[in-house]
Each structure stands twice: as structure tokens, then as C-alpha cells.
Design a protein around this nucleic acid. Sequence first.
DNA 1: CGGGGAATTCATCATCTGTAGAATTCATCC
DNA 2: GGATGAATTCTACAGATGATGAATTCCCCG
Lengths: 198, 198
Amino acid sequence: MARSGRRPGESGARERIAESARAAFGEFGFDGATIRIIATGAGVDPALVHHYFGSKQRLFLSVMSLPFNAEFLKRQLLAPGLTGVGERLVRFFLGVWDEQPSVRPILTGIVRSAMTEPDAALLLRDFLGRQGLFQLVAAIAPDRAELRAVLVGSQLIGLAMARYIVGLEPLASADPEQLVASIGPAIERYLTGDLGAA
Amino acid sequence: MARSGRRPGESGARERIAESARAAFGEFGFDGATIRIIATGAGVDPALVHHYFGSKQRLFLSVMSLPFNAEFLKRQLLAPGLTGVGERLVRFFLGVWDEQPSVRPILTGIVRSAMTEPDAALLLRDFLGRQGLFQLVAAIAPDRAELRAVLVGSQLIGLAMARYIVGLEPLASADPEQLVASIGPAIERYLTGDLGAA
DNA sequence: CGGGGAATTCATCATCTGTAGAATTCATCC
DNA sequence: GGATGAATTCTACAGATGATGAATTCCCCG
């Protein structure tokens, strides 16, 4: 008579929860994405979320990790030489946001949550700093690589915020190649140019 | 015996609530800043907040308006001519964040809240777009002023996020003049340079 | 000196939040 | 085929949150 208990067949509930969580974190941020919203999105009882992931924080950290491959990026961006590396980086960055439906909620979620959640801010710092961009920048310009990396990071994160989160026009609906041509040279200067006195 | 009722003398409660609200919104964002936190910060009962401002949203909008004076900025930045206008804009921008203790929580609050609160996103769009930066940019470069304005805005907002909200090193503790020298030319190119094909 | 209105607080509501524990159902292994 | 354990749900709690309405106290004007 009761409807509790295990359901027959393979359910894949855990993966459905993870996907629903990514979507919710991406749309509403850490605070706005409630466990009940996530559970409903996965067609599942809220308690099951805790059963699998323990707490909301652990759920966030388990599910929102970025598949960032610095080695691959280095090869991809530096193969044609140094000239045009700024354009290529912007093109790659926009491509990830525009064309990869699985990665986008992770990125928006991290950015949205980093404003208020220290854990998310840590993820963002890692991506922009030592664990992420820095690896790439150090291979291009060893001198003052930290400063160059965060300058590039600040422009890229500002671009993402304006285009994808705040929806600032005409940035939000600009043609990607227009942005590559506009922003690429600025990035390239951060990467290889003269940054002024220390 | 009861402690309710009006208190003797001038209290300035309304202004204390406004200030406490600015501080709380700046530190915790719209969602994190609860009415109780705001009331406690003002030394006041939570109901008084509603008495004066109606709802939390109206409180936010009443209290978080930016004193942005485009005319003053134009005169200030364009007086010495066009050369170096990028550096001057970055210097002015950093000066507002670094040196004006009253404006800073408003800025952090808008940025923090814009990630999840549509009203705050609107404020941010206004500041970066038609009502704000665009006024300045149009006076400098009439051609493609909208695009130039949002490009400048994206770099400035990214800088603010990295330096003041996420605390990304070495950006967070960099010397302002170092940042003026590093970022100013990029801004200047957005303002006056060639942005590539349309 | 009396009354109207503003300031302030109290008590409270309905709702939502993350989380925990117990109960129920199924799959699998011996 | 009974036992063990995992999957899933139910019920519930304790706390926080935004909001409301009534009560209380004071100021000011006549």
C-alpha cells in the first residue's frame, strides 16, 4: 500500500540528481538552488539527495568541478605560435560557454555562487589562478606570469558576467568573432606586452 | 512597564537603517542580508524596517542607488585631452572603490546581488550601459559607442570582481598605479582603437 | 492640556530551509 | 527461500525568513 521503498529496475537516480543540481546551481546560485528544487528536478525525494551526497556543500563541490585541462589548452593554443594567441584564447573561451551545454551551468553556477559562497570563490580563484590560467600563461610569458594570468582572468570573467549572467547588450548577442577581434588583442597584450613599471 | 512605543529625542533611525542595509547588502548580497541582520545593525526592531521601506526589494532599491554623475566624469576625464584617458578612467574607478567608504558597499552589493536578483542586474546594466558608461564613451568615440561602452564595462567589472569580491591575488593587493599602467591601455584601445570588422 | 499622528516594538504567522531518522520496498547472495 | 543490505520515500524537526497587525509610547499642534 505504501509507496516507499526501492523501485524496480535501474534508476540512475544519482546521476539525475547531479545533473539537476548542476542546472539549479547554474540558474539560481548556491543559495537559490534549494535541495527541494534539485530533488524535484530529478524526480526524486529530497532525502535521497542527502543520502547520496551528505550535505548541500558536498553536493556542490562534488558536482561543480571543472574539467579544465591545462596541458591540452597549451598545445591547442600555442601550436600555431605566439601571434594571435589572444584571439585564440577568447575564441576558445566563448566556445566553451556557447557550445557546450554540459559545462555552461557549471560555469554560471560557480560565478553566481562565488559572490557569496566562500567555497565557490575558492573554485573560481583556482580556475583563474594557480591551478588554471596560470599554467597556460607561464608557458607563454614566464616574467610576471601571476600578474598576467589574473589580468587575463579579470577580463575573461568580466566578459562572461556581462554576456552570460547579467545579459548586457550589445555584448550578450554580439557575434563571437566580433568579440574575438575586439577583446583578443587586449588579452594578447596582457599575455605578451609591456605592463608598465613594477 | 512595556518598552514599546516612541523613543524620546531624535533618533535618526531611518538613516541608520539605510546605512546598515547598505553595509549588509554589500557584505552578504541581497539574499544573505536578512532584515533581522539589517535591523540589528541599526539597533532597531525588524518591523521598523518594514514600516519605513515596505518590503525588502524596495529597501534595496531605495538604498543602493549609485551617485553616478556622467557630466562630472566627462569633464574630469576629458579635460587633459584624449591621450591617457584610459589610464585616467582606471585610476578614477579604483579610487572610488579604494577610497570612498560610503560608495564601496553599494558597489559590492550591486555586483553581489546582480548574480541572482533581477532588480540588481538591472541596476548593473544601467550603470554599465545606457545610463552610465555609455554617456562617457559617446563623448569620446561616437562610432560604435555601445560596443565600446560594454567592452570597457566588462573589463572594469571583471577587475572589481577579481580584486574586491573574490580577492584574487596578486590583483587584490596590487598597487593601484600598477593596475593603471597595466589595464589603462587596454581600456584606451576599447575607447578609441580599432575593434575589428563589424 | 488634550488629541491626533508618527515612531517604535511585540507577538505572531505562514512558509521555506537543511537535515535526520525511521520505515518500506526491492535486489542479490547463500 | 530467507537474510542482508542498498535504494527510496515518509514524516518530522528546529530554526530562519519576510511580512503583518495590534499595542504602546512619545511629539507636536491647537
